[in-house]
Amino acid sequence: MTEAAPAHELAQVNIARLKAPLDSPQLKDFVDSLDPVNADAEAADGFVWRLLSENGNATDVSVFGDPWLIVNMSVWRDTDALTAYMYQGRHREMLARRREWFEQVREAMVTLWWVPKGHCPTVAEAEARLLHLRAHGPTPYAFTLRTSFPQGSAEPVPGEVPNGLGCSA
């Protein structure tokens, strides 16, 4: 008997507050690394999709209506595939330097959730998941790598999803 293919994939969003404009000398190394790091992601085992705008990355995609925030959103086969990519090669090098480029923020800036296979999440969906994580901590609706939930546990528990928390459309 063959095992059925998973019906869900892992969506992730992370946002960051810039310390300087993207075209500043302070962010030059970050901006210069975007294309190679994104190419590494696309070639990684378990990569499914990433948010793109016409410029080939997502640095000009608005999130929470704040021009100082940038967004990275992608879909992966599972948490193992995402973790394997995050902590190796150029991406790991960029993680080590993130405090040079981004403000330290107290609230959660990263969240994960399961999506039906083939679904590409929207920025509004990601904003709602992140706000949910901030309001409720990790749940099957929005979680972290440290506190994750099994594939298919993407449905919100009644009463968990906050209303009116300012998600942009």
Rank of each mutant, 00 (worst) to 15 (best):
M1L: 13
M1K: 11
A4F: 11
P6D: 15
A7G: 14
H8S: 15
L10R: 06
L10C: 08
A16S: 06
A20I: 00
P21R: 01
P21G: 01
L22P: 00
P25T: 03
Q26K: 02
L27E: 01
L34A: 09
L34P: 01
P36N: 11
D40N: 08
A41W: 04
G46I: 06
F47I: 10
V48W: 10
V48Y: 09
L52A: 11
N55W: 13
G56W: 11
A58L: 04
D60V: 09
D60Q: 14
S62I: 04
D66S: 05
D66C: 06
L69D: 03
I70W: 01
V71G: 00
N72T: 10
M73S: 07
M73E: 05
V75A: 05
D78V: 07
A81I: 10
T83C: 10
M86Y: 04
M86D: 05
Y87W: 15
Y87F: 15
G89R: 08
R92K: 15
A96K: 14
R97E: 12
R98G: 05
R99Q: 11
E100C: 06
W101T: 03
W101H: 01
F102D: 01
F102V: 02
Q104H: 14
R106S: 13
R106P: 08
A108F: 09
M109W: 03
L112W: 07
C120A: 15
P121M: 04
V123L: 01
A126H: 00
A126L: 04
A128V: 08
R134C: 07
R134T: 10
P138D: 09
T139M: 07
P140G: 14
Y141I: 03
T144Q: 05
P150W: 05
Q151P: 15
G152D: 04
A154T: 07
E155N: 08
V161Q: 11
L165F: 15
G166H: 11
C167K: 06
